[in-house]
Design a protein around this nucleic acid. Structure first.
Lengths: 107, 107
DNA sequence: AATACATATGAATTAGATTTCATATGAATA
DNA sequence: TATTCATATGAAATCTAATTCATATGTATT
């Protein structure tokens, strides 16, 4: 294990579309067309995002006919999101991250 | 809470220097000069990195004389790093993240 | 009060990740 | 087997965050 492991993992998640996809898969596995429709973005964009999420095993795939069903590997990501939620509840009561307070643009 | 909260948090951590700083502060609080020396990088680089980590309350500061002592807010980041470590142990036995397998450059 | 030391800040540049768009692949159906 | 549907892939363009470098601020020391 080295520092690359950690920052590359974070880099993979540092993207609003990928967050959308993760939330979209939180309750139920879905094929790409469904993800596209729910997220409301262009096909190849979703495909690229899924591809890098898959590379880090954040999502996994199975083939069913001509569809590919993506599902979330919840072991890591779900507790991780909970940690952020807790963190934000404690530290971002100022609507931080929802405005400019954290020094970053929102999407 | 909205998606911005999550992806902005990850964005803040998606950087090798910031990881270095976090590891550097893991056991003991340090002033900026010490961090600079340990990480072996230029001053303003460290200052900028600390500033954005502080904006998300990942680190905190206290002033002591002319020095500023930074310390880690361990509540969120330590369990988060542990999750990644566990994830990598399960999924990256291929020296993934240490080579090109995950589809990303290392630093 | 002038100087030195410690650190922060701003703006231009650079680097790296996402987007876009055209095209490829692969499974099913006619 | 030709066509369609579902999805992936590659490369160029675009965006965004990190880096760089010059300068500012703030605290202590003389």
């Amino acid at each position: 294990m080295n520092n690359n492991t950690y920052y590359l993992f974070f880099t993979n998640l540092a993207n609003p579309l990928k967050m959308d996809i993760i939330f979209c898969l939180r309750d139920k596995e879905k094929n790409v067309s469904e993800i596209i429709k729910e997220c409301g973005v262009e096909q190849s964009k979703v495909s690229h995002a899924l591809s890098s999420l898959k590379a880090c095993n954040i999502v996994q795939v199975k083939q069913e006919g001509k569809e590919r069903i993506y599902f979330l590997n919840k072991d890591t990501i779900v507790p991780m999101l909970k940690l952020i939620e807790k963190h934000a509840n404690v530290h971002c009561k100022c609507k931080c991250c929802d405005n400019e307070t954290c020094g970053r643009r929102k999407k």
